[in-house]
Structures are given as structure tokens and as C-alpha cells.
Amino acid sequence: MSDNACARKTAFRNPADESFTTKALLVAVSLVFLTFFLFLPLVSVFVEAFREGWGSYQEALVEPDAWAAIRLTLLVAAIAVPLNLVFGVAAAWAIAKFEFKGKAFLITLIDLPFSISPVISGLVYVLLFGSRSLLGPFLKSYGIEILFAVPGIVLATIFVTFPFVARELIPLMQDQGTGDEEAALSLGASGWQTFWHVTLPNIKWGLLYGVLLCNARAMGEFGAVSVVSGRIRGLTNTMPLHVEILYNEYNMVAAFAVASLLALLALVTLALKTILELRFGAGIAGGRH
């Protein structure tokens, strides 16, 4: 009788379930992986940053060159992110709501920054605006510096972060179709009113999500920016570049202090992203809530 009951118990196990050992093993593997590749590096950044106490941590951040790097990073993000917001919405709108020749090519172009190495992205600007290029000397004669100056850093950052907003919005807007826009137009709304009152509210969560990712990358970009910046301390050094310089000078506390700010930024972005997904998950995924 009891044998029978036991047999039943196993027979009725959920078909998608696994034995305890298998589950424990898989969870352990994941935990070990996460510990070594995520938690430990993150913790070590903060441990190193605070190794000599809160005082030196603060000092490292208010030091003029570090402070200049923080300001430059914020400035670059403040220019690049709004521009890419506008470009991204425009590109996604064109691709998702209209049919035209060369659409597939445009999508490929939008993905280009993802598919090429950031260093190459930087080099392109060196070739375009360098002292031996056509444009560089011409602009220089009017007193406009692109390379090894803020405009070059902004350009490289815009290029590298271009796909984030567009990529986030294209599937969302394609899924939503043009029905709502047509309804608004048939009710007498102008193109601008339709965009403002109908299209934008429909994509706002996806857009916010794209902007968050774009911002995180804009502040953290290293490769492309390092090529075009020239790394002039206090002038053209962004936070990631400044971290590298400090590290190369064996100034560990300062390097990790600045790095901890970038790590914090990543954490805040992740937290915001998670909150958005929890609250408006369906909205972000399908644009319907």
C-alpha cells in the first residue's frame, strides 16, 4: 500500500520539473558564475575606492581634473542623449510607419554602430577631421576644433549610442501599426497633434527605456572617445578615460573612486530599468497596457 503511494508520488511529478540535485547544481553554477563575473568585481570597485577612507574618496572626486572629467562626461551625455532621442524617434517613426525604398538599408545603417568596433568609430572621425583630412584644416581656418576637443567627443559618442533609442522603438512602433495615427488624422488632428497626442504617449515607456540605455552607454563609452579625445587632462578627459589614466599612474584609490561613480550610474540605470519593467512590462514589450 505504502509502496503504491510512493510510486504515485513520483508518477505525478510535474513533467517540467527536475530532481533536487539537478536544480541545486544548476543554481550553484549560476551563483558561482555571477559571483566571479558580477558581484566580486562590483564589490572590489567600492572596496578599492574606500580603502583609504571616506576622506580620500571625496578628495579624489573633487580633485580638479577628476571634477573636470565628471563635468565633461555629464556635458557630453547632455548633448548626445537628447540628440539621439530626436534622431532615434525620427528614424523609428520613418521605419515603422512608412514604406519606402531603401528601408532595409536604413535599418542596416542604424545597426552599424553596434556592429563595428568603437575604436574604428573613433578612427573614422580622425580620418574625417584630422590635420591631413580635407575637413580638418578647413574648419581649423575658421577656428573650429573638432578633433581632440569637446565636439569630437560629442560626435563619437552620438555615433556609438545612436542605435539604442531607435532599436528600442522600431519593434514597438511596428507592432502598434498606423491605426491610431489614422484614427487621429480622420478626427481632424494635424500631423504634429497626432505625433504629440497619440504616437508619443503610445511609445513613452519604450522611449524612456531606450534613453536610459543610451545614457548609460554615453557616459561609459571608452573606445571611440579615447581615439578622438587626445586625453588632455582637465580639458578632454571623460570619466572612463580619467579612470584609465589614474590607474596607469598607480593611483588606485582615485581610479576606483571615479570608477565607483560609473558603477553607481550603472546600478541606478539597472534599478530604474527594473522598476520600469515591473510597472510597465507589458507596455515596454508590446506597447499595450
Binding site: G179, D180, A183, S186, N202, R288, H289
Partner: peptide, 10 residues
């Protein structure tokens, strides 16, 4: 114009 799937502004 009444659309097939209504196209109400959600």
C-alpha cells in the same frame, strides 16, 4: 471613420 479594431487611444 470607425476602424476594424476600433483604434481607440489606449
Amino acid at each position: 471613420f470607425v476602424f476594424q479594431h476600433y483604434a481607440l487611444f489606449r
